[in-house]
């Protein structure tokens, strides 16, 4: 009896070793492309800046309501890297706080959208040919057909325009794309012999959906998630730009571009900061997405 348990422990250790080895291989494939490392580094740096904004920003109090007219309209200098705005606030500090809103937006939207869409897509694909499929597919078609800005506009006019409602509007138009993605993959995998084999041995539907079908699709889903993160920022910025997202003085990047664009071209540095922030974050996520695609394509 004693011997059997040590045997089992040995196997468990072997498994750990193999799993570590697999992670190492994935990291190796990711590392092969320098650009994905650049993307990952930028995102990590921006994320740290967002988390510790209070300590990193030179003028943390400038994030919100703050007025010092004697400092207004100052061009970039050593004291203010990206100059100051019309109220004398440090643009660089505000951009750092802007990253915080950007990541919050990405996090909340993807957290709502990805699980919902993926689970519904798996179910719709698995129950192909039943009313469950029709219901889910038609419902997502309806949401896909609504233009996101119009949807955001109507939500903002019913509720109040703020960053949370803007994120809700973005999420509402986004989840069907994950349904489409997982649905089409599930349909093509549904009748593969390995699914039939598991079913014929008595595997539960939950097992089939999340242990057999989902792992195969994970790479594609993760790649889309990273590429979408940039798009969330872009749509969020567009909604803020037309005044339906975060309201001043919130240091949201889109809101800031909208506010400061009135002062173009004389005070170009004001909009340059938040605009560059948006470009940087989208670029970084796209580079990361390419790297993640390489990781899964190599298998």
């Amino acid at each position: 009896m004693k011997e059997t348990s040590t045997n089992e422990v040995r196997f468990l250790e072997l498994e750990k070793k193999v799993k570590r080895e697999n992670w190492r291989r994935m990291w190796f494939r990711f590392r092969k492309s320098k650009l994905s490392i650049v993307g990952l580094s930028i995102i990590l740096i921006l994320l740290l800046m967002a988390i510790f904004a209070e300590y990193i920003a030179p003028y943390p109090s400038h994030a919100g309501l703050y007025i010092a007219f004697k400092n207004a309209y100052k061009p970039p200098s050593l004291e203010h890297f990206l100059g100051t705005d019309m109220y004398g606030r440090d643009v660089f500090s505000r951009v750092i706080f802007g990253f915080r809103y950007a990541f919050m937006m990405i996090g909340l939207v993807l957290l709502l959208v990805v699980p919902t869409g993926v689970v519904l897509g798996l179910i719709a694909g698995y129950y192909r040919g039943t009313f469950i499929e029709t219901l889910i597919v038609r419902l997502s078609d309806i949401f896909i057909s609504l233009p996101p800005l119009v949807l955001a506009l109507s939500i903002a006019s019913i509720l109040e325009p703020n960053i949370f409602n803007a994120m809700m509007a973005v999420s509402l138009m986004w989840w069907p794309w994950y349904v489409k993605l997982t649905y089409s993959m599930t349909v093509s995998l549904r009748n593969e012999p390995f699914i039939l084999a598991a079913e014929s041995q008595g595997a539960s539907t939950l097992h089939i959906l999340f242990r057999e079908l989902l792992p195969i699709q994970l790479g594609t889903i993760l790649t889309k998630v990273t590429l979408d993160a940039g798009w969330v920022i872009l749509i969020g910025a567009a909604i803020s730009f037309v005044g339906l997202g975060a309201q001043p003085p919130t240091p949201d990047l889109g809101t800031m571009v909208s506010e400061y664009s009135k002062y173009l071209p004389e005070y170009w540095w004001m909009s340059l900061g938040p605009a560059a922030g948006i470009v940087l974050i989208i670029l970084a996520f796209n580079l990361l997405g390419d790297g993640i695609r390489d990781v899964f394509a190599g298998e």
Binding site: V18, E192, P193, F194, L196, A197, A198, S200, Q201, G202, R211, E212, P215, I216, L218, E299
Partner: peptide, 21 residues
Amino acid sequence: LKRDIQIVFQDPGTSLNPKRL
């Protein structure tokens, strides 16, 4: 019954899930 009757498919390339050990 699902225990007692088993099948071995033609192509082992498609009858084993590629993402499972």
